[in-house]
């Protein structure tokens, strides 16, 4: 079991890097949920689009040095632009409606994006090569570990720190926090809340695109890849607390570690473990680990 320290260390790294990749995606979901109060079902579909756009851009930038990284940035920008169109033309008209309308709308987006992906890229499984310089492994002293997964881990931590800094230490971040707490008050102070919402939706969606593009070399692209990721992101957001960035970080880490050590220790129950963890968290803290109970 834990008598093999190298194996334990690698599984630990596996869990962390998986968790950090999930965090990039879940962070966008929880940000949108916290500020806009919209549960974006299409967040997984945005992630899928990010992966597919990355695939096409990698082909387009094939000759350029650092083509893959341009493709990653391009995917995030493409998703930001797509989200901007969705928000300004459709979603913003639904904020004042019942939650059911928003759910229906984002669910419709899932269907539309899924068909767009099929139409544009077909149904075959596609794959993106690992970028140059990240195909091998790095010596961590205890063992070698794939460089690209180390990079994913680093990216996750980088996103976490920069989001924490933005939300807590900047003026724009103050508006985001304020919009999360009291929309009317913010409006009465003369802040354009509609604009804050739009920017948050665009930024959250760009994170989904970034996550999809970064995941593309590590997973295969296939229609339906959005379903698995959105379920995992929901679990992360629920465990961590709706709208809580720190919660999403903890939740993603727990999910990643549970998956890798689950496969190592009790492979037959690996799938159940995740749901079990969610049930336990909800029993003792229905508002999530780092969430706040709803004010009565």
């Amino acid at each position: 079991m834990f008598n093999n320290p190298v194996l334990t260390f690698i599984q630990l790294m596996n869990g962390i890097s998986l968790g950090m990749n999930l965090f990039i995606i879940a962070a966008g979901l929880t940000l949108i949920l916290g500020v806009l109060r919209v549960l974006n079902f299409a967040h997984g579909a945005f992630y899928m689009m990010g992966g597919y756009i990355c695939f096409s851009l990698v082909g387009l930038f094939a000759g350029l040095p650092g083509g893959f990284w341009l493709a990653v940035v391009g995917s995030a920008i493409a998703l930001a632009a797509f989200a901007w169109v969705v928000e300004t033309t459709m979603l913003r008209h639904l904020y004042d409606r019942d939650h059911l309308y928003q759910l229906l709308f984002t669910f419709a987006l899932v269907m539309i994006i899924s068909d767009l992906v099929r139409f544009n890229w077909g149904t075959n499984v596609l794959s993106v090569s690992l970028p140059n310089g990240f195909r091998g492994a790095t010596d961590l002293g205890i063992s070698f570990y794939p460089t690209y997964r180390l990079l994913l881990t680093g990216m996750g931590i980088f996103v976490a720190i920069s989001m924490w800094y933005f939300v807590n230490k900047t003026r724009a971040g103050r508006f985001v926090r304020a919009a999360r707490q009291d929309r009317e008050m913010l409006e009465s102070l003369g802040i354009n809340v509609g604009r804050v919402y739009m920017l948050v939706f665009v930024a959250g969606s760009a994170l989904a695109g970034l996550g999809g593009a970064l995941a593309a070399p590590a997973v295969s692209l296939a229609p339906g890849m959005d379903a698995e990721i959105i379920v995992q992101c929901f679990i992360i957001v629920i465990i961590g607390g709706l709208g809580s960035l720190g919660g999403a970080f903890v939740g993603a880490l727990m999910l990643g570690l549970l998956k890798s050590f689950g496969v190592m220790l009790i492979p037959n129950f690996e799938i159940v473990l995740i749901y079990l963890m969610m049930v336990i968290v909800l029993m003792f803290r229905p508002w999530g680990l780092l969430g706040k109970p709803e004010a009565k």
Binding site: L7, Q11, N14, G15, E228, V263, M264
Partner: peptide, 17 residues
């Protein structure tokens, strides 16, 4: 590995150990 999984790393690690 479960059908539909996208991350095989934990299985790969087990086999290599």
């Amino acid at each position: 590995p479960q059908n539909g999984t996208t991350d095989y790393t934990a299985h790969i690690t087990n086999i290599m150990a």
